[in-house]
């Protein structure tokens, strides 16, 4: 029981809660293990619980029209996911997939609201985490908007300035823009391949000149000798083998 409390304390949301409260909470929480690439929930699912990542890492993803996966964010140990739907009662806004073997703690809706009622501190820490996510989203949107404008103008210079590996770890928003970056690269390549539209080379032969040159060669004195000589040589080779 003690070990369980220590583990719950690692969740940012529960930091500052008294041990008594954690003890109560421990009984309401269930644990799930996800293999890498296993889906925790899908966009559009109805929401009955939130999840806290105890160990491992998950990707928040949206599928694009081509069935490709666009990663919007990544969350690691201590972070809470899926609480938004509990507040606004909307279906899940994105899917969550394990990026590595991951352990998550599940806290059901009723238990969550009960916790909020009894410990307003938890609400404050949640608001803090939501605010930081909002900032993240704003930064993301701002850069993506700037880049989109540049792409529309045919200016790809930002791709040289923002090599994805050069993006700092601190600025998560920019890191997630790696996906955007890949898309821009695709657009650029398509444009370039259109530009260097291959030409058709038409093989032109001056037939009169061709006949004349062949005629000159084949009518030369040495030519008929050469022909007989070559025939002789070939016959010899056949005999020798």
């Amino acid at each position: 029981m003690n070990g369980e409390i220590i583990r719950l304390k690692k969740a940012f949301m529960f930091q500052g809660l008294p041990d008594e409260a954690l003890k109560v909470l421990a009984q309401k929480i269930t644990r799930q293990r996800l293999k890498k690439d296993e889906v925790l929930f899908r966009r559009g699912d109805s929401a009955q619980a939130l999840f806290i990542i105890e160990e491992g890492e998950v990707k928040i993803v949206r599928e694009d029209e081509n069935g490709g996966e666009l990663a919007l964010n990544r969350c690691g140990a201590g972070e809470t996911i899926g609480e938004m739907s509990l507040f606004d009662r909307e279906p899940r806004s994105a899917s969550v997939v394990a990026a590595a073997p991951t352990h998550v703690l599940e806290l059901k809706r009723e238990a969550f609201f009960e916790l909020l009622n009894q410990h307003p501190d938890v609400a404050v820490s949640l608001i803090r985490s939501l605010s930081s996510r909002l900032r993240f989203a704003s930064a993301y949107i701002q850069t993506a908007t700037e880049w989109s404008k540049k792409i529309a103008e045919g200016d790809y210079s930002f791709m040289e300035q923002n090599q994805p590996e050069a993006l700092t770890d601190e600025d998560k928003a920019e890191q997630m823009l790696f996906e955007f970056f890949k898309m821009a690269k695709g657009v650029k390549e398509r444009e370039e391949s259109l530009e260097r539209q291959v030409q058709k080379l038409t093989l032109v032969i001056d037939e009169a000149k061709r006949r004349q040159e062949v005629e000159e060669l084949t009518s030369a004195e040495f030519y008929s000798q050469l022909k007989t000589q070559a025939q002789k040589i070939r016959a010899q080779r056949r005999d020798r083998s």
Binding site: I205, R210, L217
Partner: peptide, 13 residues
């Protein structure tokens, strides 16, 4: 292309 045409004709001959 032109030179090759002549060569090809000669080779055949």
């Amino acid at each position: 292309f032109q030179g090759t045409a002549v060569t090809v004709d000669i080779a055949r001959s």
